[in-house]
Amino acid sequence: MSSDESEVLPWEKVGKGNAKKLKRAGILVDLERCVGCHSCSISCKTEHSVPLGNFRTRTHYLQRPGHNQITHVPTLCMHCQDAPCLDACPTGAIGRLDDGRVVINDERCNGTKACIPACPYGAISIHKETGRAEKCDFCRQRTDVGLEPACVEACPTEALRYGDMDDATDPVAQYAKEKQAVPILAEAGTKPSVVYVGVESWMEDRVKSVQPTDDEDGIIYE
């Protein structure tokens, strides 16, 4: 450790001035590293007090057709560059930040629910307690002060990485290029900012569009 680094204490790395300036915030999900431990979804629920039955981040357990092999596929809001939820919301409650993140303004949401079927990834749901739409915002309260999203920080295998997808010098963008990371359900044409390493076509049908619920039939753990 150099003398310069030793002078910066851990808590001094956190604060408004330490936020990374990203052109296009994104997350890389490396399915070759994911072990399906649910750390991402649990840390997300804890970070945002997501109630039972709502999911901002999910980990799907998918069985490869004809095999016993299980693959784990974490999903979250893809922060699409052509986000259909943005167009569908009648009150303009869904907006975009300078770094491309798609966020919901709670005060403008009146619960029309148009954003829910608009999302091909099933990333949006109605908060059971507030009755407003909710979804992943890449942990705005954390990334705005220089921290990483809770799911990225909690992942024990570094299967999730947060970075600038439009900056060729960013290590995450470089890793994405090296590993030929691609979005899931690319045919939806929404240009997601979340990309996957190791995704295969058979996985895609299983991860699209529908939010699990904990209605009368009991909780669905995915």
Partner: peptide, 10 residues
């Protein structure tokens, strides 16, 4: 009150 010109519901 809030018009979103892209939204068909709006």
């Amino acid at each position: 009150r809030h018009y979103n010109p892209a939204s068909w519901i709006s």
